[in-house]
Each structure stands twice: as structure tokens, then as C-alpha cells.
Design a binder for these strands. Structure first.
Lengths: 233, 233
DNA sequence: AAGTGGTCTAGACCACGCG
DNA sequence: GCGTGGTCTAGACCACTTA
């Protein structure tokens, strides 16, 4: 028997990956328990635990107490998206960033918005519409609602120099958020703002962030055609 | 001083989150080192390490040896997408799944495909076009290329009953993949297949998976209008 | 009831990267 | 150089879940 030692959790992980990949352990198979693997690899159980836990988090293994560890039969690919501040995203692409505030209003929101944000329908929210530019060309249109009861400082911020996209990160903590991606056709107004034909296919990102039970902000970002969200698996 | 104890790594994490959230530790701030926190919390350093490492992985903290741990100034939101088998995705939504193979051919691929897959331009690839249905309605159009040099068994599989989407997961291991999401307009043929107007905005997912240095498969999925990819942050 | 992963501890050494 | 996080160890107890 091959009794090569694997002392670091990364090397243990690599060996496990190799076995899965080489079909020594096939999808659905039960693999040896942590103690046995530790003995085989010549390392502590906690080292094996670290390696296997990490693989379980990425979806490649299914682990259950008493039932043991199995190679995932249908590994749900878990892709991690990095959603950065738009300015950083543009600047990292080597382009110059531009920002233009189109509208700033303190108004009662439509019911779809107040409903989603769970604010009273009479409560006024700060409504912002703005354009992000890369090298002078329209990059993304931002349509945002801010709950000023949760972020009162936003009421005295003009948002004419700094985008809400960036300002909120520093001033409004949030506990969690819902994100949705979809594809939409450009309406006449948005088409005009982005400088694209009406009915162009736009990539949309909708985000609703929460501070515990209170909504902080709701935003829709419509990206100019050509935008691609990339990740690695 | 408050010397409440936090014995589990989750409770340590919650306390750290509370302090960040309450602005006791603001974005950019250096927080105490692991040893000090362990002393304060009345637990072992490794427990603190586990809590902080986890927060760093999710982007809320920046950690560097010697430089210490800081609250991230512009936390890059890391959203994890679960990309499942289409059949499971549909069935979990409570709908019945349908599958229809449109075309299966063994041909030399266009240069964009062979270039991306790094296969020889003369090498023949298995080309599949298929439709996934939810409750009988078109759900997604799949256009796929399979490298049969890497997955020879695919050559003898009809793919008329089981989608390549599902078959490959069980038969073709991969080491990594690139994923891209974008928005595209439906061309006449795709519009016809999906039963939507030409130029409809479709959500597109492009995946290219690799087995080490060899490409396994390249697929474009075009989802019918209304499709939304959701996640939580 | 018993086996498995989940976690905690105390201590140790190491690797990185500021200053 | 030296402080910090990164990791490993051996051992222990616990929690969950299945048999």
C-alpha cells in the first residue's frame, strides 16, 4: 500500500481531489472516515478535517455525522461572484470612471418598491437615478431607492459627486441582501440614457439589502450591451 | 471592561460582526490580534482564527501577516451562485421537466469554438442542440460542444433521453471551468425554438469546463424571458 | 447504541511581510 | 528583526444521525 505522507491540509485536499478525479472514489461513494485517512496520510485528524470541510463547502463532498463522507453525486457548482463597487470594476479594467447624477428626489415610492422594501406606502424614500461611464461611454444605469429612516445621513448627501453605489458601502452597514440577475429589454428612456437602440438586451442586476429586518436600499443596475459577468468554478 | 466569554467560533464571529456593524470597528480599522481577542473572549486562539478566517473568506475582513486584521473598507460582496442541473432546477420549482434533442452532429467546430476549447481546428467535436422544458413550455435552449477525445464515451451516447447537461456530470470529471453571464437578443432561429418574439432579451450562461489543460465541453444556455438567477449575500 | 463529523484546547513552529 | 496570521498536533468532548 502506498503510504506516502500528506502533511498539509492542501496536500491532503489535492490527494482527495486526485482520487475523485481518477475515479478511485466515484460520485456517490462513501470515502474513509477522517481518522482512517489521518492514519493513512500520516497527519492529524484535524488536518484531514480541514481539507474535507473545505471540499464540502465547495460542494464536492457531502458530509453527515454518522453517515460519513460521500463524493457528491450531482455536485452543485458553486460559483462565487465578486460584486465590487462599479467605479473599482471600471478602473480595474483600465478605463477611466465617470459618474453623472440624473435625478434625485424624495418621494413616496411605488407600491412594488415599498412592498419589496417593507416600508409604509406613505413613507418617502430617496430616489436616485444615475449613470456610470467607462471612458466616457455609458456603462450602467442605476435606479435606486434609499430608506432614509435607516440611513438618515443619506438625506443630506447630494450624490452629485459620489455615487450612492459607493457612498452606501461606507455609511450604511447591512446584514444581508438579495440579488437577482436577469435580462431585460431597454425601454425608450433607458435606451436614450445608455445611448443604445430601444429594445436592446440589457443585463440587469437587482439588489435589495437589509439591516436586520429593515430594508436599506433597493437598486436596479442596467448594464450597457456587451456587459459580461464572469466567474470561475 | 466587558469580559463576557465567547466559546464557540460562531459566537466569536457574531460578536465581531456586531462590533463591525455597531461601528465599534469601522471600515479600514485595525482590530486586535488573534491572541488578544482570544484572551478577551476567553477561548483558544484557534477558535478566534476560525471565526476571523471565515469572515475574511466572505470578504468582510482583510488579513495580512504582520500587518494584522482590518475591517474591509470596500467589502467586495461575494455572492455564491448554485448552478444545478437544469432538470433539478425545474423540478425544485415544482414543475415537470421535459427534454427535447434538436440536433446531434459530429463535426469540425467553428474557429471561435475550437479556439476557445483549444482543440485543433480539424478535430471533430460532438455538437448538440437541445431544448429544456418546464411544464411543457420552453425553458432553456442548450447549444453544446463536447470534446470526445477527453470524453470518448460521449460518442456512443445518443443524448436523446438524457441531456448532456446531466450526463456529463456523472461521466466527465472536470477540474475547473469558466462561467460568463450576459444578455443577448434572440435571433430568428432561437426565437422560434423558444417560442418568443425575435429580438427578445434572453439571459445567457456560457460555460467552458476543463480537465486540467484539456477542454471538456463548451455550452451556451439561453433562457426564456422571465428567467432570473437569484442569490443571497 | 455507536460511529462519524464538528469543534475546542494548549502548545508549538512556521512563513510572510512590515518597518 | 520580529509581530502577525497560518497551520499542525494530540487529545478530548460533543452533537447528530443512522442502524
Amino acid at each position: 500500500m502506498n503510504t506516502q505522507t500528506f502533511r498539509s491540509w492542501q496536500s491532503v485536499q489535492e490527494e482527495v481531489l486526485r482520487r475523485i478525479h481518477a475515479r478511485e472514489w466515484s460520485p456517490g461513494d462513501l470515502i474513509p472516515n477522517e481518522a482512517d485517512l489521518a492514519a493513512e496520510f500520516g497527519c492529524a485528524r484535524s488536518t484531514v478535517n480541514r481539507a474535507l470541510r473545505s471540499l464540502a463547502e465547495s460542494g464536492l463532498l457531502d458530509r453527515r455525522r454518522k453517515a460519513g463522507t460521500r463524493v457528491a453525486a450531482a455536485p452543485v457548482a458553486k460559483a462565487t461572484l465578486n460584486i465590487a463597487v462599479i467605479r473599482h470594476e471600471i478602473e480595474e479594467g483600465g478605463a477611466s470612471y465617470g459618474y453623472f447624477l440624473i435625478e434625485r428626489a424624495f418621494v413616496a415610492a411605488p407600491v412594488q418598491v415599498s412592498g419589496a422594501m417593507k416600508t409604509g406606502s406613505a413613507q418617502k424614500l430617496l430616489h436616485l437615478r444615475a449613470l456610470h461611464l467607462a471612458d466616457g461611454a455609458p456603462y450602467a444605469f442605476e435606479d435606486r431607492w434609499i430608506n432614509t429612516e435607516v440611513v438618515p445621513e443619506a438625506a443630506s448627501e447630494g450624490f452629485d459627486r459620489v455615487s450612492a453605489n459607493e457612498w452606501l458601502l461606507k455609511h450604511a452597514p447591512y446584514t444581508h441582501g438579495d440579488i437577482a440577475f436577469s435580462s431585460v429589454q431597454a425601454g425608450p428612456e433607458v435606451a436614450d440614457i445608455l445611448g443604445v437602440p430601444t429594445q436592446s438586451a440589457l443585463f440587469a442586476m437587482d439588489r435589495l439589502t437589509w439591516d436586520n429586518a429593515a430594508s436599506v436600499t433597493k437598486v436596479r443596475l442596467l448594464f450597457a450591451p456587451g456587459y459580461t459577468l464572469r466567474t470561475r468554478i
